[in-house]
Computed example of a mutant assay.
Amino acid sequence: MGPHPAVAAIRLAVRRVLHDVLAAVDGDIPRAPAAVGVPRSPAAAPPPLVLVACSGGADSMALASALAFEAPRIGVRAGAVTVDHGLQDGSTERAREVAERLADLGLSPVETTAVAVGRDGGPEAAARSARYGALDAAAERHGAAAVLLGHTRDDQAETVLLGLARGSGTRSLAGMAAVSGGLSGAASAIGRYRRPFLAIDRQTTRKACLVQAIPVWDDPHNSDPSFTRSRVRHEALPVLEKALGRGVVEALARTAQLSRDDADALDTWAREAERSVTRPDGTLDVAALHALPPAVRRRVLRSAAIAAGAPAGSLFARHIEETDRLITAWHGQRPLNLPGRVEASRQGGRLVLQQADR
């Protein structure tokens, strides 16, 4: 008798990702699972290490259990990291308990890391920044080929709704990528972060933990209405499903993938266009910019602003729209002040983006 369908689903998702990781690291692998306990040839490279980021919640514990089951069957070492954000009473003890559960699953190495959460961008963004910083450091420290994250299809739907509310364009509707980030050297081809569960719903991960008798911790922040994502999860999405019927989550997740494909294509077009509109002196040719489709032109302008020193996280749609008006609605405007002390100005047939103190 095989595993419960929920357990089978999470294991299959992780197995596919591990095969992809091995294929990128080794160049090629057999698709049939290797026998458990069969060592590699002494001449072979050491087995790559894959870490799972685990908070102790159902999604990440399900991911950890699937990784612990699948990794030894295809010649991968499996470890885990749990991040203590220090935002709740007892967080240190809870992180220790999660680490013990991860070790009980057979993961090694397992480490806990405490972070100091700042205030930049609001509490959710600050916690996310601190968490990824800790995960980056752990991956570098252990030489991990990849870090697995437990984001589900439900998380993806929430991300798309948040992007829609911000009105930041196609890229914000693309949600979370299945692969993101990057390591130095050979591992850069696979990306640091992998999200195996983007096609799996939250109910499946919770069921997988239940049938395997895996204890989970429900973070009270996930139901705290003071957090934007919590309101989307518990208020906005239920209202949409009540008004539009079931299937909203699946539709939003599908929108993310379609938007990502479109955004990737436009980004590729923009990179090629940027080379064609850039003059030998580094300025941009206004006539050539004007001939580009707006979606491509705005991407070129954003890339040029970042190259000139504007921080990507502070460069919003309104900044790009005003810069675009120097191309499409020119009537002698004064230079624009962009984030990072970058100045955008039109000088004859050229668009110049440079540090204002030059």
Rank of each mutant, 00 (worst) to 15 (best):
residue 2 G to I: 07
residue 2 G to C: 14
residue 6 A to I: 08
residue 7 V to A: 01
residue 8 A to G: 09
residue 10 I to H: 03
residue 12 L to Y: 03
residue 13 A to G: 00
residue 15 R to F: 07
residue 17 V to T: 10
residue 20 D to I: 05
residue 23 A to H: 14
residue 24 A to H: 12
residue 24 A to L: 13
residue 25 V to C: 03
residue 27 G to M: 08
residue 30 P to T: 15
residue 31 R to V: 09
residue 35 A to K: 03
residue 36 V to R: 01
residue 37 G to W: 06
residue 39 P to S: 02
residue 41 S to W: 12
residue 41 S to V: 07
residue 46 P to G: 07
residue 48 P to L: 07
residue 50 V to C: 02
residue 54 C to W: 08
residue 55 S to K: 04
residue 56 G to F: 01
residue 60 S to H: 00
residue 62 A to T: 00
residue 63 L to S: 01
residue 66 A to H: 09
residue 69 F to Q: 03
residue 71 A to E: 15
residue 75 G to M: 02
residue 78 A to P: 06
residue 78 A to S: 06
residue 79 G to A: 12
residue 83 V to R: 00
residue 89 D to I: 15
residue 91 S to H: 14
residue 92 T to Q: 07
residue 94 R to L: 15
residue 94 R to S: 04
residue 97 E to W: 00
residue 100 E to T: 13
residue 107 L to S: 04
residue 108 S to P: 01
residue 108 S to T: 15
residue 109 P to R: 10
residue 110 V to T: 07
residue 111 E to F: 06
residue 111 E to K: 08
residue 113 T to S: 12
residue 117 V to F: 12
residue 121 G to N: 11
residue 123 P to A: 03
residue 124 E to W: 02
residue 126 A to Y: 11
residue 127 A to Q: 09
residue 127 A to I: 06
residue 127 A to V: 01
residue 128 R to H: 09
residue 132 Y to C: 15
residue 133 G to Q: 00
residue 135 L to I: 14
residue 141 R to G: 04
residue 145 A to G: 05
residue 145 A to Q: 06
residue 155 D to H: 04
residue 156 Q to N: 01
residue 157 A to E: 10
residue 160 V to Q: 04
residue 160 V to N: 00
residue 162 L to D: 15
residue 164 L to N: 12
residue 164 L to T: 04
residue 166 R to K: 14
residue 168 S to R: 02
residue 171 R to H: 10
residue 177 A to L: 07
residue 179 V to R: 12
residue 179 V to K: 00
residue 180 S to M: 01
residue 184 S to P: 03
residue 185 G to C: 10
residue 193 Y to D: 08
residue 193 Y to R: 09
residue 197 F to L: 05
residue 199 A to Q: 14
residue 204 T to D: 03
residue 208 A to C: 07
residue 209 C to Y: 01
residue 210 L to C: 02
residue 210 L to Y: 03
residue 214 I to S: 00
residue 216 V to M: 01
residue 216 V to R: 14
residue 217 W to T: 05
residue 221 H to I: 14
residue 222 N to S: 15
residue 223 S to K: 11
residue 224 D to Q: 08
residue 225 P to S: 10
residue 227 F to C: 09
residue 230 S to I: 11
residue 233 R to L: 06
residue 235 E to C: 02
residue 236 A to V: 04
residue 242 K to W: 14
residue 242 K to G: 14
residue 247 G to R: 06
residue 257 Q to Y: 10
residue 259 S to E: 05
residue 262 D to P: 02
residue 264 D to I: 00
residue 265 A to D: 12
residue 266 L to A: 11
residue 266 L to W: 11
residue 266 L to K: 08
residue 269 W to G: 03
residue 269 W to N: 11
residue 271 R to G: 15
residue 275 R to K: 13
residue 278 T to K: 10
residue 279 R to C: 09
residue 282 G to W: 11
residue 282 G to F: 08
residue 284 L to C: 11
residue 285 D to G: 07
residue 287 A to I: 13
residue 288 A to T: 05
residue 291 A to N: 14
residue 292 L to H: 10
residue 292 L to P: 04
residue 296 V to Y: 03
residue 299 R to K: 05
residue 299 R to F: 08
residue 300 V to A: 10
residue 311 P to A: 13
residue 314 S to D: 13
residue 314 S to A: 06
residue 316 F to L: 14
residue 319 H to P: 04
residue 320 I to Y: 11
residue 321 E to K: 04
residue 322 E to Y: 05
residue 322 E to I: 13
residue 329 A to D: 11
residue 329 A to C: 07
residue 333 Q to W: 02
residue 334 R to E: 12
residue 339 P to C: 13
residue 342 V to Y: 02
residue 349 G to F: 06
residue 352 V to A: 04
residue 357 D to Y: 15
residue 357 D to H: 13
